[in-house]
Design a protein around this nucleic acid. Structure first.
Lengths: 109, 109
DNA sequence: CATAAATATTGACAGTCATCAATATAATAA
DNA sequence: TTATTATATTGATGACTGTCAATATTTATG
């Protein structure tokens, strides 16, 4: 069974990934480090919407942001991707001390 | 670059995973096949809410549902979990033919 | 200082969704 | 048939969120 604070972190990441435009952004940013205006040219959204999405992706550590002069450069955070793989493995594997082993009270089965 | 219909499928899965209660359900169901009333005892939600979440998890193939008499048995679908790992690898890896390589028009950088 | 370029923030709005109580359906047992 | 158990559906509600235009901020340049 996963700890509650681990749930919070992974849910935040999955929430970030559950938006088509953000998946697209992650896909593009995985190629190489790009500035916001370059990403914007690949997509059909307004500048403010892109800025909002980048904030979400950064806040859950999926993307790393780096400021240089007036530009913001974005790149994928491989460490967080590895964490997703790991936590997904933990969540979807068998547990010996699972809460499902508690005594069933209301279930007449 | 990932195809658009692949995006749709993976976004649907991530949307299912972006809800704390559904992650918890997936965690519990990964232990062994359980009926709805057993899952219900592990959680603090109403029966109708659980039914709704199971429908979401089944519709994106994260969970397999099996009816036996009046009971519904749920188990994790390992195949979909493997697909998540694969598509995540594709999304977060370098691409030679990325859309980010197109000529930049408006960016003055 | 004034202008321009890149990005961030704000406020509004429409759409989505998690939740529940109430009810319906399905299957079994008396 | 009637009652009971397990699960699904419906309808309502409050909360959240993606989107945009407008505006603000930051940085460099003339």
């Amino acid at each position: 069974m996963v700890k509650n604070n681990d749930y919070d972190k992974v849910v935040e990441i999955f929430k970030a990934l559950s938006e088509p435009m953000r998946i697209k952004i992650l896909d593009v940013v995985s190629c190489r480090e790009l500035c916001a205006c370059e990403i914007l040219e690949c997509l059909s959204i307004s500048q403010s919407t892109l800025s909002h999405h980048m904030k979400v992706l950064i806040s859950c550590d999926l993307v790393i942001g780096r400021k240089e002069a007036t530009w913001m450069y974005y790149s994928i955070n491989k460490e967080t991707i590895a964490n997703i793989h790991n936590i997904l493995d933990i969540i979807t594997s068998k547990k010996s001390n699972c809460v499902c082993n508690v005594q069933r009270k209301n279930c007449k089965k």
